[in-house]
Design a protein around this nucleic acid. Sequence first.
DNA 1: TTGAAAGCGCTAACAT
DNA 2: ATGTTAGCGCTTTCAA
Lengths: 353, 353
Amino acid sequence: MNDRTPAKAVTLRDVAAHAGVSPRTVSNVVNGFAHVSPAMRTKVQASIEALRYRPNLLARSLRQGRTGHILLLVPDLTVAYFAELAHEVVERAGELGTTVMVDETGGDAGRERAMLDDAAESSWVDGVLLSSLGLGSTDLDGMDLAGMSTRMPVVLLGERTASSSLDHVGIDNVAAAHAATTHLIECGRTRVVALGGNGGPIDATSQLRLDGFNRAMTAAGLPVAGRHVGTPDYSRESARAVVTDLMDGPEPPDALFCFSDDLACGALRALYDLGIRVPTDVAVAGFDDAGVSAYLTPGLTSIRQDRTAIARSALEMLYERKSGHELPPRDVTVSYELVVRESTNGAAVTRRS
Amino acid sequence: MNDRTPAKAVTLRDVAAHAGVSPRTVSNVVNGFAHVSPAMRTKVQASIEALRYRPNLLARSLRQGRTGHILLLVPDLTVAYFAELAHEVVERAGELGTTVMVDETGGDAGRERAMLDDAAESSWVDGVLLSSLGLGSTDLDGMDLAGMSTRMPVVLLGERTASSSLDHVGIDNVAAAHAATTHLIECGRTRVVALGGNGGPIDATSQLRLDGFNRAMTAAGLPVAGRHVGTPDYSRESARAVVTDLMDGPEPPDALFCFSDDLACGALRALYDLGIRVPTDVAVAGFDDAGVSAYLTPGLTSIRQDRTAIARSALEMLYERKSGHELPPRDVTVSYELVVRESTNGAAVTRRS
DNA sequence: TTGAAAGCGCTAACAT
DNA sequence: ATGTTAGCGCTTTCAA
């Protein structure tokens, strides 16, 4: 009655009292159930408006056991690919009335595992989407994933980890890398070098891309020995440093296939600083087709994954698993596309010569 | 007792029963309260481990009225600045044990308002961080913000909207734009053009940056009339198109001050395609210092906001307001820095000549 | 220091 | 078609 009542929330019972009906009826109206007489419905609606009632979603979730939230785990949002993936997930989830909690793993397998474990028990989310670079099959084996995934739906985004018992969606990394490499070879390059994946135990994604690279090279009768150079991480800076060294070496490459656009970006910068022309002297291809890649100079040839399909499929799988309990782990493969720009075909640079 | 019991969650009562104590005692142990005898504590701990008990955070939040979640609203995660801001917020929040829900507004004032309204009632989050371009002072006036902000703490990130009754944290956009413009002028440029802000009702941030630009130009005795060119949006593509036209016009600029790095990136690309040298013919400065900007060719001069401080202050203000109810709206100003690279000083390009 | 019991606000059996 | 009621799992007065 007092306008300055200290912010006591209006509850469903208050509405029921105001309308002179039972909580049950109010609930029915709020949730749009059938079997409510029009008269009742309007009366209750009026009370809802009058009291400015808003259902407490926390309470509803506690009762129903589902929250309408999912957790997205990515290594690092400052990496364009993951930001763009997050964007896509947020958009698709929004269409489904689901909101997305985002957390960063730093790409560290231990942290990924810990955060997954945590999420599995957390009751905050209906499921988890994990985009992982670092989590190789070895790590997955070590986890009690079977037990976890029965309680909490988990979908792996991006990398294919054969041994996993989790759902997975991504592109065929081997084929995509094969396509990019073949493109470089068809541009007349012979001393192609693959760039990416940390020097030590290589992550699953890099391994697959390296496989594709090796196959394409071998198929073309080119040697693969010493044709892969690791980077300490996936940063632009590491690529820049590595490429600077590489071009100073005994047998400098005439093409670079980078396992991400960030790496390619660092490579382009290194070549620019060395006064090496792209693609005239060295052709460069990347992976992921970050938004900025078309605007680099020269524009970067890259592999574009169908991120929309990744996000959409992942969410579908999540909610399917939430219902049908005992599905076997599924693998969804979405399409990719080789986007050719100046960094490999020379169109933009011939303009200058 | 049966290993295949269908995933019934272990509750606090189960632990209590197992340990032969009351729920109260278990709760005390879980929450690390004092006044629990060591013997009791170890006994309860043992039961917790034995049953692999995990507290239901949903129930806890329902009871306590706080969730440990915040909502971050940004226009678009594919824009590097917002992704990097989100990264910073997620990191800082993580240090506080808070998780971040992310949603995208598309920069649309209507959507921003709707999502704020929604969040204010939602009980899912302890507060909202809103990073807004589109929400000008006009829109804020139209909202019932006073009423909202008493229920739900809201902190505005990035732009200063004078009329707002909400907390705000950001840099001094006028001073920063002034600094960037002055830098261009000191590089000997006279036909400087400011680029950004949609053509119609300009957003608050762009307006402030434009003010700083105008002041610097005027202070240097340079004309400001016709020296601002709007872009349809903040995309690289719009800048590219606008700059292409601009350079074809009657009095082409010899410097561009872009209101974001994305715009600058599009501008650089347009100049590259036109065969115009940067910075020899045209100097370019951006705003936000996106991670990629140092790797563009030439490297982009830009204004770097202290994003860490923005995130940290915003979270502090949020939780202060959650406790002390009746604080007046506060304005926190964090530092910025002009990062000079080749796009304005020519260092990298002289290498080529 | 620990126990008993009352809710937080909602939904869904069960009853009418 | 609507009312009654028992919880979801937790915290937290109030007692002891």
